[in-house]
């Protein structure tokens, strides 16, 4: 069976310019065999949701180091749902306190990764999610 590639949108929402993590993660997911689209900086949640739809991605990975995660994650989640993409995994990372990670997971955001993450762990998490949630539909 030819396994299709997992499509991931790595996005930088808001005004935050810290893209070291986003680029390292994008490159390592690509090296892990995924199809990666990186948005570049300063994206609005609307723009991210539109791109996710256009690119038909399985996963949206947001990188936020600006402290605005409690606004931006829920907003992207909501817009994706409005676009009918409720089956997309929204994950990500940044400087996010544990209790905020917990609160975001309650809202339906996936696992979030903080400083010191091994990139392989993020790739494995996405692959596991994909196998559990997408393999059936792709047959």
């Amino acid at each position: 069976m030819a396994e299709r590639k997992i499509r991931v949108l790595v996005a930088k929402p808001g005004l935050d310019g810290h893209d070291r993590g986003a680029k390292v993660i994008a490159a390592s997911l690509r090296d892990a065999g995924m199809e990666v689209i990186y948005t570049g900086l300063h994206q609005t949640p609307e723009k991210i949701a539109t791109t996710a739809l256009q690119e038909d991605v399985d996963v949206v990975a947001l990188s936020i180091l600006s402290g605005a995660h409690m606004t931006l994650f829920p907003r992207v989640l909501e817009l994706l749902r409005e676009n009918g993409m409720d089956d997309v995994l929204v994950t990500g990372g940044g400087i996010i306190p544990q209790e905020d990670m917990d609160a975001l997971q309650e809202l339906g955001v996936g696992r979030l990764f903080g400083p010191g993450t091994v990139t392989g762990d993020a790739a494995a998490y996405i692959r596991d999610w994909f196998e559990e949630n997408r393999m059936d539909e792709d047959g």
């Binding site: 808001g14 005004l15 402290g67 605005a68």
Partner: peptide, 20 residues
């Protein structure tokens, strides 16, 4: 970040980032 990017605090682009 809004100030660093030259936006007023009440600009819609700055939602969630003011003073953070």
């Amino acid at each position: 970040f809004p100030t660093l990017m030259g936006y007023d605090s009440d600009d819609p682009l700055c939602e969630g980032e003011v003073g953070k």
